[in-house]
Design a protein around this nucleic acid. Sequence first.
DNA 1: CGGTGCTTTGACATCGCTCAACGACGGTGG
DNA 2: CCACCGTCGTTGAGCGATGTCAAAGCACCG
Lengths: 255, 255
Amino acid sequence: MPHGYSTPMEMLVRKLDSCAQLEQAERAAILNLPHTVRSLPARHDIVSFGDRPTQCCLVLQGWVSRYAALSEGGRQIQSFYVAGDMPDLQSLHLHRMDHHLAALTTCTLAFIGHDELRQVTRQYPGLAAALWRDTLIDAAHYRERITSLGRRQALGRVAHIFCELYLRQKAIGLANGTSCPLAPKQSELADALGLTSVHLNRVLRTLRLRGLVTLGGGVLTIENWNELAALAEFDPTFLHQADDEAPAEKATEPA
Amino acid sequence: MPHGYSTPMEMLVRKLDSCAQLEQAERAAILNLPHTVRSLPARHDIVSFGDRPTQCCLVLQGWVSRYAALSEGGRQIQSFYVAGDMPDLQSLHLHRMDHHLAALTTCTLAFIGHDELRQVTRQYPGLAAALWRDTLIDAAHYRERITSLGRRQALGRVAHIFCELYLRQKAIGLANGTSCPLAPKQSELADALGLTSVHLNRVLRTLRLRGLVTLGGGVLTIENWNELAALAEFDPTFLHQADDEAPAEKATEPA
DNA sequence: CGGTGCTTTGACATCGCTCAACGACGGTGG
DNA sequence: CCACCGTCGTTGAGCGATGTCAAAGCACCG
């Protein structure tokens, strides 16, 4: 998707089409959606807790994080988003933000008005279903994060998120062999995994010493997928990337 | 909602209507949905990981839990559902279950076929929006659980889930003064909160000794809402119960 | 009256946090 | 070109929150 897409809305069509098979008219409706493209600097809030957004954004480039701010400066990152994702689709039907959305890196985003989007979903139930499905996959990611935070130890949590982020990026052509971009810095990964950056750092050292993963310069390299996935008890079902596969599904492997 | 509802579909209408304002034709469409009512014993799976359900269920009575099973008998309960909830609406667009749904207590459920439900959402975009919104609120609950598991200590986590479950039940008329039903036993609460049942028990004792909460016989009583909510850093925004309120919102209090 | 399952408590182990310091790196200005 | 500074990553030592293991209490029910 990042390779040679031409326009923002073509990117969106490709994304929705990949799982829901749009009809020609639906594709055209998306392509005709009015939108504006904007760049945001890293650390900048896109929307904040309490806001009542009037538009949704589509990530064209860069990384976005969803987070909750707690007292005493604490925060919990609830999810990461990359090119092709629409992180605040939920605001279409949930009017008041219960969290923040922020640019993790410098980002380019396309903004689409709620009114136009609602109009299009009213007219094309297939589009509504595709967008709805997108938010449901988002929720599936949340559920898996809950499982990680609740029942996996630090090592497994880190291993798990690496598997997830690698496969998600592989699916949209952002992976390169056994490597993929990984923009969040250690403190941000820690905030996503319910750990301290200090402890996350120690876990990373362990993973490196065991020859499972190397992380540096914004690039994640998975040295041993099988062991990593085993450590994480990783099952890709929750990604819903090939939802209609035969019941006896096999874990996806890089390389 | 539990008080004197007559039919399952009237219950669903009331639930959807409470947040999305249905039109008359939409209400009628729901009321005409074919469905079957079934009772399930406690601990029984409603749908399991890997299943491809062909219908959705509506909880009429009892408690339902969504959980992920891990190796070695571990499990993470991802959410609880009570009367009026549709816990597997997501299966309408996510074809393969990535988790389990189980009766926590003896339950009565209404089952509605996917085909009929999809038909109705295609015909009435307002209904699609209402159901979509319902799944988005579910996702908002997940996000808050992530925040709890990642960044709150045991005491705050327990306090937080009590606030949540009390308010959710109050909203549908299941609370009684400062008390409400609480079907999950300690080991189930522990599985939901990423704790051991042993440690959860100690936390409960602390809450009891501090005069914040008493729990017993399937009933939760909140003795001191303000302190409990403060301990939990509880903000009801994520419940989206009165989504269109003025920006300066106040915490809801019992009694 | 003797299960059986849930709750409660104690003693001890461990994982992850806190505090503190240092190192690596890149940008910036003199 | 180099000194300075801020940010991020790395490491150590000690502590605290939570898990583990084990046993006893208690209620419900046949």
